[in-house]
């Protein structure tokens, strides 16, 4: 059974595109066939993070308009076998995409891929509606900041109403030094208020920016830095493996107890 997962957040700039590119690559490295879909029409980025921008010919828009076949629009990643990108249109077309069309598109993609990962735009308007349309599960990205968590909570509610479940949480850009100095909310704090299961913690890592500049996902590096290791662990958790959260020790015992509770159940 193939999985259609939307990666969303409400707030912009929290790491949706970075995480989509890396999770897609990591899952492909595990031997899965993966397609990442850029649903951020008008602000396409996913091709850049994957270093595939020069190979984009057609986009999802042409496929929807019937101007090309789906296979023609897919960009195969040469570095990572099993990984393909469906790019978004960069120019906002007059013919707005409708949720029903997106639903059809991702369902078609799911026929011959194990994973369809959809990179959602920021916000909760039409673009978000389109991104979640065909999804059967969701990963919510937040950073440990007030505005990001607030928006994430809003999105959790909307996904619930749209019956997209399960929803899982990734906390990105965590700074353990600031947490231990009590300057930043901890993983425990965020999980407690959002009350959805945690699937991963990605630390703040300057290597993320370096990899973006290169157009090479972080998980491809020969010595994966901390953030990349975290993303690889998330890929394995998605595959159903039980993978320990490593920086638990530095975050204290009560975190672990609480995290465990939230890991496999949705508390409302």
């Amino acid at each position: 059974m193939s999985r259609i997962i939307v990666i969303t957040s409400g707030k912009g700039g929290v790491g949706k595109t970075t995480i989509t590119a890396n999770l897609g690559t990591a899952l492909a490295q595990l031997g899965r066939s993966v397609v990442v879909v850029d649903a951020d029409f008008g602000l396409r980025n996913l091709d850049l993070l994957l270093g595939l921008e020069n190979r984009v010919v057609y986009t999802a828009l042409e496929v929807i308009a019937g101007e090309c076949r789906l296979e023609q629009a897919l960009v195969k990643d040469k570095r990572t076998s099993n990984l393909a990108l469906l790019p978004a249109a960069q120019t906002r077309n007059k013919t707005a995409v409708k949720p029903e069309q997106m639903r059809q598109l991702v369902s078609q993609l799911s026929d011959n891929h194990d994973y369809v990962l959809i990179d959602s735009p920021a916000g909760i308007e039409q673009g978000f509606r389109n991104a979640i349309a065909g999804a059967t599960e969701a990963i919510i990205i937040t950073t440990p900041e007030l505005a990001a968590v607030r928006d994430a909570d809003r999105v959790v509610g909307l996904l619930e109403a749209a019956e997209v479940r399960p929803t899982r949480l990734i906390i990105n850009r965590l700074r353990p030094d600031m947490v231990s100095a009590n300057q930043m909310m901890s993983v425990e704090d965020v999980v407690e208020v959002l009350a959805i299961p945690l699937v991963g913690i990605v630390p703040e890592d300057r290597e993320v920016i370096v990899s973006t500049n290169k157009g090479e996902p972080l998980v491809l590096s020969s010595h994966p830095p901390l953030a990349a290791q975290a993303l690889q662990r998330i890929a394995r958790r998605l595959e159903g493996e039980t993978v320990d959260f490593p920086n638990v020790a530095s975050l204290g015992e009560s975190f672990w107890e609480r995290a465990k509770r939230f890991l496999n159940q949705r508390v409302i």
Binding site: E145, L146, R150, D153, N182, M184, M185, D189, V193
Partner: peptide, 27 residues
Amino acid sequence: DQWFSRHTGSSRDQAKQRLKLILAHDR
């Protein structure tokens, strides 16, 4: 030091308290 800073309104604590209130109203 940490214990007291947490309970006398550390940056982390302020964020968490405000967040709880905001979410309660949003929800």
